[in-house]
C-alpha cells in the first residue's frame, strides 16, 4: 500500500511517473522490450514490431479523435500515404531511411492538413464524413496513379540499412522500429502535459468556451490534424520498412476501422490506450487462427471464415466497449492500479 502523497515540489507532482511502482514498472517494461528479441522466437518479435507500428498510428488517431474529438475514418489511408511516400522516396532518391522517414512524415502531415481543411468550417459528423471521403479518394489515387505508385500490383522498397547492414530479419527490424515507437508515445504523453494538449481537450469538451479562453480553433484543429497525420506518416514509414512491399488494398477503410476499434478498446484520451488497443487488435487474428486451428479437424472449410471472423470481432469490440466500458482497457488498468495501491484495504 502507498500511503500519503509526499510531494515537496510541484515539479514532482507534475511528473509522468509519479510513484515508485510506476517508475519501476516503466523500467521493467523497457527492460522487457530490450530482452524480448533475445528470448522470444522470430514470430513473436514480428508481432511485437507490428504492435509498435500500430501503437504509433493509433497514438496519432488518439491525438485527433481521442483528445481533440474529431473522429477520423481516414487514418488508415493516411498510414498508406506514409508507407507509399516512404517507398517512392526511397526508390527515387536512394537516400537512407533516416532521411526518408522525416520526409514521408512531412508529406503525410501535408496530405492530412489538406483533408483537415474542412474541419475549419464544420465539426462532428460532417468532419467524420469528410475523412471518410478522404479515405476513398486517397486509396483511389494510390490505385490509379500507376506511374508513381505502381497501381494495383503494389510497390517494393529496399530495406533500411544501418552501417551497411540491411535490416531484414525480424529482430533487426524490431530494433529499429520499437525504440522509435516508444519515443513517439512519450512525445505524445508530454504534449498533454502542456498548453498544446490542454487546448486540444478544451476543443473536444466545449469548443466555444475554448475560444473565449483564447484558444484559436482554426490553429489548434489544424495542428491536431497535422500531428495526427504526422503520426500516421511515421507509422506508415515504419510499416514500409517492416514489410518492404505494399498493396493499396491494405490501407482501405477496414484499416481505419481497426484503428478506431483499437482506440475504443484500449481507451481513448489515455496515453496507454493506444498501446493496449494495438496489442489487442494484433492478437485477435492470431487468437482466432488458434481457435480455428482446433476446429479445422471437425470442419476443414472453417479456415475460409478467418477473414470475416476478424472483421466481425473488430466491429463487435467497438460496440461492446462503447456500451459497457467506453473508457476502454486503460480505465480498467487504472482501477487495477488503484486496487494495488490501496491493498490490503478495499478501494
Amino acid at each position: 500500500m502507498l500511503i500519503g502523497d509526499y510531494k515537496a515540489t510541484y515539479a514532482a507532482d507534475e511528473a509522468i511517473f509519479r510513484s515508485w511502482p510506476v517508475r519501476y514498472g516503466f523500467a521493467a517494461m523497457v527492460a522487457g522490450l530490450v530482452l524480448l528479441p533475445f528470448a522470444a522466437n522470430s514470430f513473436i518479435v514480428f508481432l511485437a514490431t507490428q504492435v509498435a507500428i500500430y501503437t504509433v498510428a493509433i497514438t496519432g488517431l488518439n491525438i485527433l479523435t481521442g483528445y481533440t474529438g474529431l473522429i477520423s475514418l481516414g487514418h488508415g489511408a493516411l498510414v498508406g500515404v506514409g508507407a507509399y511516400a516512404t517507398a517512392i522516396l526511397a526508390n527515387w532518391l536512394g537516400v537512407p531511411f533516416w532521411v526518408v522517414i522525416p520526409m514521408a512524415v512531412a508529406v503525410t502531415a501535408g496530405v492530412g492538413l489538406m483533408f483537415g481543411l474542412p474541419s475549419l468550417r464544420i465539426r462532428g459528423l460532417y468532419l467524420t464524413i469528410a475523412t471518410l471521403a478522404a479515405s476513398f479518394i486517397i486509396v483511389f489515387v494510390i490505385e490509379h496513379w500507376g506511374s508513381v505508385t505502381n497501381g494495383d500490383s503494389g510497390i517494393t522498397l529496399a530495406p533500411a540499412s544501418v552501417f551497411g547492414i540491411d535490416l531484414v530479419s525480424d529482430p533487426q527490424k524490431y530494433a529499429l522500429i520499437v525504440p522509435i515507437a516508444v519515443l513517439a508515445v512519450l512525445f505524445a504523453q508530454n504534449l498533454f502535459r502542456t498548453r498544446i494538449g490542454r487546448a486540444f481537450i478544451a476543443i473536444r469538451d466545449s469548443d466555444y468556451s475554448a475560444e473565449i479562453i483564447g484558444v484559436g480553433l482554426t490553429r489548434y484543429k489544424l495542428l491536431a490534424f497535422g500531428l495526427g497525420s504526422a503520426y500516421a506518416g511515421l507509422a506508415g514509414s515504419l510499416w514500409a520498412y517492416n514489410f518492404l512491399a505494399l498493396l493499396p488494398t491494405q490501407f482501405e477503410l477496414q484499416l481505419s476501422i481497426i484503428f478506431l476499434a483499437a482506440l475504443v478498446v484500449g481507451g481513448s484520451a489515455r496515453t496507454l490506450g493506444p498501446v493496449f488497443g494495438a496489442v489487442f487488435v494484433i492478437l485477435i487474428p492470431e487468437m482466432l487462427k488458434w481457435v480455428f486451428g482446433f476446429l479445422t479437424p471437425f470442419n476443414p472449410t472453417i479456415v475460409e471464415y478467418t477473414a470475416p471472423a476478424n472483421t466481425i470481432a473488430y466491429g463487435l469490440l467497438i460496440i461492446v466497449f462503447m456500451i459497457f466500458e467506453p473508457m476502454g482497457l486503460a480505465a480498467i488498468w487504472t482501477r487495477i492500479w488503484r486496487y494495488i495501491n490501496l491493498w490490503p484495504f478495499s478501494p
Binding site: A188, N190, T194, R195, R198, A202, D205, S206, V215
Partner: peptide, 28 residues
C-alpha cells in the same frame, strides 16, 4: 461551461493559455 473531462487544475491552467508560449516541439 467548464471542460468536464479535465481536472480542476487543468481547467484553471487552460485559463492561462494565452500567457504561455510552449510550442509543439518543446512540448513533446
Amino acid at each position: 461551461s467548464l471542460f468536464p473531462g479535465m481536472t480542476v487544475l487543468d481547467n484553471i491552467k487552460l485559463g492561462a493559455h494565452t500567457h504561455l508560449k510552449t510550442g509543439v516541439l518543446a512540448a513533446g
